[in-house]
């Protein structure tokens, strides 16, 4: 364990930042381009986790545990969000027989 931590600390911070940026961008693009609500949800999770990873990395880098505490909060929050979001999607599916978000264009003037 001790070994793993030191080894990981050996990975430069920059690599984490690049990785997180890539994952986050994948998430954003996923949200923007996909029409399936569930896939969009998954993309949102990707974005959240990219941020989580970044927080953890900086937490270790700065020797400050509060960053990791935040990660726990975000994970709890994400779980709650998924629960509510999936419930909404289920309701949408029941009403429209589809989970294509382009069908949901009633939210306008």
């Amino acid at each position: 364990m001790e070994n793993l931590t030191t080894q990981m600390a050996g990975v430069p911070l920059n690599h984490y930042i690049y990785l997180c940026a890539i994952i986050f961008t994948i998430g954003v693009i996923g949200v923007l381009t996909r029409r399936n609500a569930i896939v969009i949800f998954m993309s949102v999770e990707l974005m959240l986790n990219a941020v989580n990873l970044l927080l953890t990395a900086f937490s270790v880098h700065n020797n400050d545990p509060s960053g990791q505490v935040f990660v726990f909060f975000i994970m709890a929050l994400a779980a709650a969000e998924v629960a509510v979001g999936l419930a909404i999607i289920v309701m949408v599916y029941r009403n429209t027989k589809s989970i294509d978000i382009n069908v949901l264009n009633r939210l306008k003037w």
């Binding site: 923007l32 029409r35 978000i101 382009n102 264009n105 009633r106 939210l107 306008k108 003037w109």
Partner: peptide
Amino acid sequence: VRLLQSGNVGFYIFMMV
């Protein structure tokens, strides 16, 4: 201006990003 509110969620997200 109200025409901007197309109701298309994807478009909203795109604008947000």
